[in-house]
Design a protein around this nucleic acid. Structure first.
Lengths: 314, 314
DNA sequence: AATGCTGCGCAACATTTATTACAAATGCTC
DNA sequence: GAGCATTTGTAATAAATGTTGCGCAGCATT
């Protein structure tokens, strides 16, 4: 036990000493660490097995690995212990992280436009490309059922829809309420500023759908309100960011979005698209009703065009 | 054992049936299979957990997965059984193969569209991909000078900014005013409904920048207002769609956007991004001022937190 | 209201799998 | 060639993990 004084560490921080005594730090490259640390015969066989098809080989069981390498299980364990992984589970966690990183990075590199330094790009162009990337990624994590569950709720004519947003997301709630109100009945925007809408709580019941917009710097009042609504039996739908507002636990369906932005404020671009998609889905569910309602509204608007403007929020 | 006659198979050959009975074959894309097969509430949560960070989430233990998703272990097992994986080990093997394949060919990494026909795609996914495409195209028609001209105006502390939007674009004006107001002084939202803001016209002069949002089904009142503002000597900036509102002729800078949408309403997603980009540009032009102003606001907000809510629009 | 159905979590069970102790084998030194 | 040290495999053990049956709860149907 002279050699490996190193303790078991969370991150594989093993430092090897290279040819001229220069320390080699493998903390960034697990695969290399595995390959270069072999000394004895069995360890070499093991290292080869790792190298042969890296991530896969390391993600199975100890036994599988041992068999593939032609060594015994304990040898595998001992090797990994030497490298600083006290438990096999720790090792696998590290491998998974590595996989994640490697799987994630080529994507980003691919998107790098010709001007190698993204700083060279104009801000505006940079923002647009970033958004394009966001949407591309969003598309790859769509869970149709989740979206449909929300759309079904919003489209159900027996239910009444109430939208509520925080300081910066009130806009979204407003947009949703405005557009949804044009294609179906019983849509309201809960107004936050007026004593914070607690008055509304008393009337809530199981026939109400509360659609909440809550993004980072989550406002405690929102959670408080959500709890009250839940207690009253209302159904809760949540749109939030990737960090997930605590309200998620109270919701029966959640839609998340990234909020990467070039400004000090989180971006609401993807959520805006989500709202629009929801509207589209609601329309799709009962095209005729929506069409008729829109036509009626159009007619009404023609009736009193110039004077005063519209009745509701707009 | 009535339901799943399918045996455990090496390759996950589950076939789903698309909208018109067209079979959808996921045999090449495990991630999509996991996301698209969810139906019940718990399954949705699970699918979301899978989607959140795909390979990693699936390579741990059943328990870890269940916890992350907020469901029970057996639910995980049942879901996977439905998808054709008799044993959890089979599933993980499939995941590992997938990881191998994807690491091998980074180019294929972007999920190749599952339903060959875009019609087969889910509405939500379709919307997201469409937006990605929109932004991609927008990036290729960026005219930096035009954008910068607008940003310069909005950032000029000697000028006063007034935002105005139409029926459906008032939202954008509001968002701009709200955020811009946090990073610089003299920002106002012209309220359309109150007698249509003509009162404001009388005070306009060359030190005012009117930023207008006018999208298809251009409202005549907007044009009328713009003419008045122009006559009063105000500077006009316009955000409109590709068809270009007639106000464009009166504006000293114009930013256009597509408004393709799946709903009866035009999409405001790109314009939202434009607004955010403008804010970012303004902040970039004088980072210190913006930072200080934000800090001061923050402090003020802390002062009167709970009572009444904010003074202005929000 | 009562009944059947489905979805889902709890908890016991069974199996797998990591881990440890021990002994055989190998290589090295005197 | 005996003795010591290091390496490696075997087998037993303990822990973790997958798997299954049961029952409750919610929902739709009659």
């Amino acid at each position: 036990m002279l050699r490996s004084i190193q303790q078991s560490v969370n991150m594989y921080q093993t430092i090897h000493v290279g040819f001229f005594g220069a320390p080699m730090d493998y903390s960034e490259n697990l695969a290399a660490l595995l390959r270069n640390s072999a000394v004895s015969a069995a360890e070499r066989k093991l290292a080869s097995a790792f190298a042969d098809n890296f991530p896969t080989s390391a993600l199975g069981t100890v036994e599988a690995l041992a068999t593939r390498a032609g060594v015994s299980g304990p040898t595998v364990l001992r090797y990994l212990t030497k490298l600083g992984f006290a438990r096999f589970a720790d090792f696998q966690t590290a491998v998974r992280q590595e996989v994640d990183r490697q799987l994630g990075s080529p994507l980003l590199q691919l998107e790098q436009p010709v001007g190698q330094d993204p700083q060279d790009e104009h801000l505006y162009r940079r923002v647009l490309l970033m958004q394009a990337e966001s949407f591309r990624r969003m598309a790859d994590r769509v869970v149709p059922a989740e979206f449909d569950a929300i759309a079904d709720l919003l489209a159900d004519p027996k239910l009444s829809i109430k939208a509520l947003g925080g300081r910066y997301s009130r806009n979204l709630a407003q947009r949703l309420a405005l557009q949804l109100g044009q294609v179906r009945a019983n849509v309201a925007l809960l107004d936050q500023s007026l004593g914070f809408a607690y008055d509304q709580l008393i009337d809530l019941g199981p026939r109400d759908v509360i659609i909440l917009f809550d993004y980072r710097r989550y406002q405690p009042e929102m959670l408080h309100f959500a709890k009250g609504a839940r207690a009253a039996g209302a159904r809760i739908v949540l749109l939030t960011d990737f960090w997930r507002s605590p309200i998620a636990a109270l919701s029966e369906a959640v839609l998340t979005a990234p909020d990467d932005s070039a400004s000090p404020f989180g971006s609401r671009v993807v959520p805006t698209a989500q709202v629009e998609a929801l509207i589209a889905a609601v329309v799709e569910r009962d095209r005729d009703t929506a069409r008729q309602r829109l036509a009626r509204l159009e007619a009404l608007r023609k009736g009193n065009d110039q004077p005063k403007g519209d009745t509701q929020h707009d």
